[in-house]
Design a protein around this nucleic acid. Structure first.
Length: 687
DNA sequence: GAGTTTGAAACT
DNA sequence: CAGTTTCAAACTC
């Protein structure tokens, strides 16, 4: 870890040092602080090392980050209040220092030292060795960031413990820069102490800008960032670059508190009339972040979106408050996102990934709720994001690309929110440990939206969940296997039968309906959007997707098909009868060993990727929420095809999201579902 | 929102 | 394997 500017840090000319030491200001500072100069330099460096240390490195867990944000929010207020106090007391440096010390103790927010902030050159020369050493210190004492932006004296006091741990050699190296830093600091304190603080805070902003640039590349690695406690510490020449690297390379999570901080900065800047801060820098990065944030807002619900370009034109305070609102909402998504630990109705996910780069966890988790992963590994919410004008307001309001982008982002976010609020299980007596429970059956932990009682289907009861699952599987090995299987032309070719029959799907075990005529969602076949098959034991089957008796199996029998289509016009089947392809309604006999056949088809990444029936249930829930009279239009417009439940557990109540089969659909929408042999419920147990 | 209906899951 | 019970979602009012 060689620092490019390593040479710069070393020994400042002695004459310069003496000059500062001889200054009245320096003497006065020394009289206030019992800490020796050598230590102070240490402090400076140690603190800088903290700036390099990504918060996510310390707290990789999203949960922790949530807490952290809360902490930051609260303490930001402390800082603000204290800041005002300090401004009023600027004439009394001693008091100001004390106040600053208190504020620093309260605020774990700013991890930049005044020395490095106020002195562009003084902080440059932090040796890599020093970083290595002090990174450890930072880990040991994450709270050291508390004494960040305060007076040097305060920092000295707070860092005393750190100073004792650092080497004397480093102390000597950094002595001069720090002294110079202190000197300038003092001068600033005399003039605009408040402004200094604000400016320091603003320094964080570049990370946002850079992060925006880096987000595109980072998106695909988000999961790693979430879970891997990256220890990468990038060295840069100045504090700004440090921040940039920190947010852009170590973890996007770190941007969350940063963003919060930036909001505060914006507000504070607005108050102080200083508009050259983060808000302005936002503008600089808009072109990039407008694009990236939309992506991130989709796959990273918790990721702050800093690209609300419309906000640029707004009052700073309004701008920041809007951003804050966005963030607060996204935070809720994050909280939700972390809850379920397995499943996604994606029993086959590991298999899917065999031929692909494994999607990161964050994508997977975000996919849980109504999102569908695109082939490139990103997550795309299948929504009407293409129609920003429908969001509200006039078309004129969406003229600018920025606003359109904002609208898209908001739409995506709203979908995430909506998905997150989707109803889940409502178990009362099963403790959510039986297949009665949709969540359990789908391989999902129960989460907040669930209304279950005495739920044991939670991560804290993982052991019990696993045992129960084993028990159920011992009774029925296919209990968590996909209930609804989809056969395609390829499958049929493999089977060597009826290779003229197009894609279709059937319930593997079949339904047993007696009264619903397979026209209501009581019927698992109907609920899954598949036709009944000879495997079904239903009575009076009128399944609009295909009757057991094969009314639509004739294929060439237009009347039979019409009859089925007519049945499909039933209100209960409104949402699926939009297929134009009559062959979709053919009744295909389901081979008993479909898993074998399908697995053969899943040898290629393409096939495997097509397996991704991701976020099915939630998407389906969203579909169900569509008013019936509107559904056909919507579905037709979206080319929504059969709703298939592949790779999901037997409980078909939770239905997979639709997989679009229209030729005009995008790649992600045209994904076909191919059953393959998959380990049931793989996500429960690590391989 | 409460009550009913329904069929899968679980049990015997 | 069949019959019964339990259960929770779907449905109705």
């Amino acid at each position: 870890m060689d620092t490019p500017h390593k040479t710069q840090i070393t020994p400042t000319p002695t004459s310069s040092l003496s000059k500062f030491e001889d200054s009245p200001v320096f003497k006065y500072i020394d009289s206030l602080s019992p800490i020796e100069q050598a230590k102070s330099s240490q402090t400076d460096n140690a603190f800088n090392s903290l700036a390099f240390l990504s918060p996510s490195s310390l707290f990789p867990s999203p949960q922790i980050n949530c807490h952290r944000e809360s902490r930051f929010s609260v303490k930001r207020h402390h800082f603000s209040a204290d800041l005002s106090t300090r401004v009023l007391q600027s004439s009394n440096e001693s008091n100001a220092s004390q106040e600053a010390s208190k504020a620093a103790g309260q605020s774990g927010l700013y991890d930049e030292h005044p020395g490095c902030l106020s002195n562009d050159g003084s902080s440059k020369g932090i040796s890599s060795d020093l970083f290595d050493k002090q990174s450890d210190l930072a880990v040991e004492l994450p709270g050291t960031s508390k004494y960040d932006c305060r007076s040097p004296d305060d920092n000295l006091e707070a860092c005393d413990a750190l100073l004792k741990k650092t080497s004397l050699e480093v102390v000597e190296q950094e002595r001069s820069p720090f002294q110079r830093s202190r000197d300038e600091w003092k001068e600033r304190q005399r003039s605009f102490e408040n402004e200094r603080d604000l400016r320091k805070i603003r320094r964080i902003k570049p990370s946002e800008e850079a992060a925006g640039c880096g987000w595109v590349a980072v998106v695909s690695d988000v999961a790693d960032m979430l879970t891997v406690n990256t220890s990468i510490i990038h060295e840069n020449s100045d504090g700004q670059d440090q921040r940039t690297v920190d947010s852009g390379t170590t973890s996007f999570i770190s941007n969350i508190p940063e963003f919060s901080l930036d909001n505060a900065n914006n507000l504070e800047n607005a108050e102080s009339g200083d508009h050259q801060g983060s808000c302005k820098q936002n503008e600089l990065g808009d072109s990039v972040t407008d694009q990236t944030s939309c992506i991130l807002s989709t796959c990273l619900p918790d990721k702050p979106v800093v690209t609300d370009s419309s906000l640029k034109k707004d009052d700073k305070g309004e701008k920041c408050s809007q951003l804050s609102r966005q963030r607060s909402i996204r935070r809720r998504c994050l909280v939700f996102e972390k809850s379920p630990g397995f499943g996604l109705h994606l029993n086959s996910l590991p298999n899917i990934l065999k031929g692909q780069n494994p999607p990161n966890k964050s994508i997977l988790s975000s996919m849980k709720m109504g999102e569908v992963p695109s082939d490139n590994g990103t997550v795309v919410i299948e929504s009407s994001c293409e129609a920003p004008a429908s969001v509200g307001g006039t078309d004129a309001d969406h003229n600018t690309p920025e606003k359109k982008s904002l609208i898209l982002c908001r739409q995506k976010f709203e979908l995430v929110e909506e998905s997150a609020s989707c109803k889940r299980c409502n178990c009362k007596r099963s403790k959510c440990l039986k297949l009665y429970c949709d969540c359990f059956a789908a391989g999902l932990y129960c989460i907040e939206p669930c209304s279950c009682l005495d739920c044991f289907n939670k991560p804290i009861h993982e052991k019990m969940v696993l045992e129960t699952r084993k028990q159920i599987e011992s009774r029925n090995p296919q209990a968590f296997a996909p209930k609804v299987i989809r056969s395609t032309d390829s499958v049929l070719d493999t089977w060597g039968e009826n290779n003229k029959t197009p894609a279709s799907a059937r319930h593997k075990r079949g339904c047993n309906c007696r009264k619903s005529s397979c026209l209501k969602k009581y019927c698992e076949c109907f609920q899954a959007g598949v036709g009944c098959s000879p495997s079904c034991r239903c009575e009076g089957c009128k399944n609009s997707f295909g009757r057991k008796d094969g009314c639509d199996e004739s294929g060439s029998d237009g009347e039979g098909l019409e009859a089925c289509e007519k049945n499909a016009s039933d209100k209960n089947s409104h949402d699926i009868v939009t297929h134009k392809n009559a062959e979709e309604h053919r009744d295909l006999p389901v081979p008993s060993n479909i898993s074998r056949s399908s697995s053969q088809l899943c040898n290629t990444p393409e096939h495997c990727s097509s397996e991704s029936s991701l976020g099915q249930s939630k998407f389906n829930s969203n579909l169900q929420a569509i008013p019936e009279d509107e559904t056909p239009k919507v579905l037709k417009h979206k080319c929504l095809p059969l709703i298939l439940k592949t790779n999901s557990p037997p409980n078909s109540k939770r239905v997979s999201p639709p997989h679009h089969e229209c030729s005009s659909s995008t790649a992600q929408r045209s994904r076909k579902l191919i059953l393959k042999s998959i380990p049931s419920f793989p996500s429960f147990c690590p391989p």
